[in-house]
């Protein structure tokens, strides 16, 4: 079985800083990591490989440094890594990103037929959860989003059964290969790489594709040009004018503070009081 996993290198959003005046992002010193959601996709792919054999190719579109993220994926046991990188991709939104990734997957497929594509649920920088569905549509693959478990793969019959998180429940879906799965978080735990895999990853050459190598001829579909959405403004969340009314009580005894609060709260919001009192105890 040949599985492609799409991963993205993202800035560790917990460490992002914003320039107080210009509201631009200060990137210096912000470490780049593999999008955490994508690791669940990768681990699931590796488990399928462990069970059914085959190979796992990791794919990313990004700047040259994104090679680090791919190499990290190789240490966990991915067999091959492809970095699609070209200045022409800059400024891509999700539509343009899925175009480029779909083209690259088509290219990979030409070498060795792809049975399954994985993406993460979403990225922590874009947060859109759109790229996975986008790739599936462009490649005309069956789309399975928010998958929490791959229950069964029948390679001979080319069938696959998964559990998918739906609103208010779990769907059990069956589909045909090839298909695209976006993997839900918290569904598995990434393995600890062996020394052999560390060596293999360190030695493995990441394949670097520019626009042409990725099989993209139409530049109007990629980068800023191929992106219907544009950011017109970046701004800081508005500071609210309303500051909390501080509850004070003689001596600040917890009991007195509590009573003062309840008094204020219920006098000004009688409906709230009624609702609380009316609910079954």
């Amino acid at each position: 079985m040949h599985i492609v996993v799409c991963i993205k290198q993202v800035p560790d959003s917990a460490q992002i800083r914003v320039h107080p005046v210009t509201n631009t992002i200060m990137r210096q010193g912000v470490p780049a990591i593999v999008n955490p959601y994508d690791l669940f996709a990768l681990e699931e792919a590796l488990r399928l490989k462990d069970r059914h054999g085959g190979r796992v190719t990791v794919l990313t579109m990004g700047p040259p440094q994104a090679e680090d993220a791919l190499r990290k994926c190789l240490t966990f046991g991915a067999d091959e890594a492809i970095l699609v990188t070209d200045r022409a991709f800059a400024g891509a939104d999700t539509l343009a990103t899925s175009y480029a990734l779909a083209a690259a997957i088509r290219n990979i497929d030409r070498d060795a037929a792809v049975d399954l594509v994985f993406t993460g649920k979403q990225t922590i920088d874009g947060d859109t959860a759109q790229v996975g569905p986008g790739i599936a549509k462009r490649l005309d693959l069956q789309l399975l989003t928010y998958v929490s478990r791959v229950e069964q793969v029948d390679i001979a019959q080319r069938r696959l059964r998964v559990q998918r998180r739906a609103e208010g429940g779990v769907q059990v879906l069956e589909t045909r290969l090839p298909c695209l799965i976006t993997m839900l978080e918290g569904t598995n735990e990434m393995r600890f790489a062996s020394m052999d895999n560390m060596f293999r990853a360190a030695r493995c050459a990441v394949r670097i594709w520019d626009r042409e190598a990725a099989g993209i001829s139409d530049v109007s579909k990629i980068g800023l040009k191929g992106s219907p959405t544009v950011v017109s403004k970046v701004f800081a969340p508005q500071a609210r004018a309303r500051r909390a009314e501080l509850i004070e009580a003689e001596g600040d005894a917890p009991r007195d503070l509590a009573l003062t609060l309840i008094n204020k709260l219920f006098t000004r919001n009688p409906k709230l009081r009624d609702a609380i009192v009316a609910q079954p105890s």
Partner: peptide
């Protein structure tokens, strides 16, 4: 000796 499986080099 490293901390990984197969870690003697």
């Amino acid at each position: 000796q490293t901390d990984r499986e197969g870690g003697a080099i």
